[in-house]
C-alpha cells in the first residue's frame, strides 16, 4: 500500500514538474531573424506572413528598428554613457528582427532550412539559429530523452502498482479460500464470487489515490516555493490547486483502472469457478 501510494504521488508530481520544465524551456527557444538595415518594412511584413503560414510555426513576433532601440534604451536607462554614445551615433544601429517560435522543438531545423531557401534571403542579415543551433538541438534532444525516460518510468511505476494491487487481491483470495469453496459448492453465481475481489481492487485504487493526495499536498507545500525560486515560470502550487479536481479525478480513475485490472488478473489466475 505504502509503495503504491508513493509510486502514485511520484508519478503525478514528476509528470507535472517535467511537463512544466519542458514547456518552459521549449518556449524559450526561438529563431531570431535579423534584417539588414536597409530592408524595406513591407518586404519584412511579407516575409513574416509567409513564415506564419508554415505549419510548424506557432507564432512570430516582429520587432522593428525603433522598437529595438527603445528596448535597448529601457534596458540601459541607468547607464548614461551608453545612452549618450548612442545619441552621438546619430542613426539607429539596430536591425529589425523577427522572432519565430515553432510548435515543437524538433521543428526548428526545418524552419531554418525554409528561411535559407526563400527569396527574402537578400534582406536577411543573419539568422541566429545557426549560432544557437547546437544548443537548440542538444536541448531538444535532452527534452525528448527526458520525456521518453519519464514515460518508461511511468510504465515501470504503473507495473509496480499493478503488482502490489495484484498481490493484495491474491492474498484476499487466499485468505478467503474456504468461503470461496463453500460459495462454489452451494452454487453462487460466478460474478457473485468474484465481485468482492474486484471491489477489493477498486478500493485499493481509490485509497491509494487519496493517500497519494494526502502525501502530495504537504510535500508540495515544501517543494513548491523552492521550485518557484529557480524556475519562476512554473508555479507548481497554483498549477496544482488550479487543476485539483482534474487531478483528483484522473488519479482516482487511474487508480481504480489499475486496481480493477490487477484484480481481474488475480481472479483469472487464482479463482477457479
Amino acid at each position: 500500500m505504502t509503495i503504491t501510494l508513493l509510486v502514485w504521488s511520484g508519478l503525478l508530481l514528476l509528470n507535472v514538474v517535467m511537463t512544466g520544465i519542458l514547456d518552459s524551456l521549449a518556449s524559450k527557444i526561438d529563431i531570431s531573424v535579423y534584417f539588414s538595415l536597409d530592408a524595406p518594412e513591407p518586404a519584412i511584413k511579407d516575409f513574416q506572413q509567409k513564415i506564419q503560414q508554415l505549419s510548424q510555426v506557432a507564432d512570430t513576433e516582429y520587432i522593428s528598428r525603433d522598437e529595438a532601440i527603445d528596448v535597448f534604451k529601457d534596458k540601459h536607462s541607468g547607464d548614461s554613457t551608453l545612452v549618450a554614445s548612442l545619441q552621438e551615433l546619430g542613426s539607429n544601429p539596430f536591425e529589425a528582427s523577427l522572432n519565430i517560435r515553432a510548435k515543437e522543438t524538433g521543428q526548428y531545423g526545418s524552419i531554418a532550412d525554409f528561411i535559407d531557401k526563400t527569396e527574402f534571403k537578400n534582406i536577411i542579415s543573419k539568422i541566429n539559429f545557426a549560432e544557437n543551433k547546437t544548443a537548440i538541438e542538444r536541448l531538444s534532444h535532452i527534452i525528448s530523452v527526458t520525456r521518453q525516460s519519464g514515460l518508461v518510468l511511468s510504465l515501470i511505476m504503473a507495473f509496480i502498482a499493478i503488482l502490489v494491487a495484484f498481490n493484495t487481491v491474491r492474498l484476499a483470495i487466499y485468505s478467503s479460500r474456504e468461503e470461496i469453496s463453500v460459495m462454489k459448492l452451494v452454487g453462487a453465481s460466478n460474478w457473485f464470487v468474484r465481485g468482492p475481489f474486484i471491489m477489493e481492487g477498486t478500493l485499493h485504487g481509490v485509497f491509494s489515490s487519496f493517500f497519494a493526495l494526502s502525501v502530495m499536498i504537504p510535500a508540495l507545500g515544501v517543494i513548491g516555493p523552492r521550485f518557484n525560486s529557480f524556475l519562476p515560470e512554473i508555479n507548481l502550487i497554483s498549477y496544482f490547486y488550479g487543476n485539483i479536481w482534474q487531478i483528483v479525478l484522473l488519479q482516482t480513475a487511474a487508480g481504480v483502472a489499475l486496481g480493477v485490472f490487477s484484480s481481474l488478473i488475480a481472479i483469472r489466475r487464482y479463482l477457479k469457478v
Binding site: 452451494v186 452454487g187 453465481s189 460466478n190 469457478v273
Partner: peptide, 10 residues
C-alpha cells in the same frame, strides 16, 4: 458454459 455451472450446483 461457466455461468451455467452454478445452476447445476444448485
Amino acid at each position: 458454459r461457466p455461468h451455467e455451472v452454478p445452476f447445476l450446483r444448485r
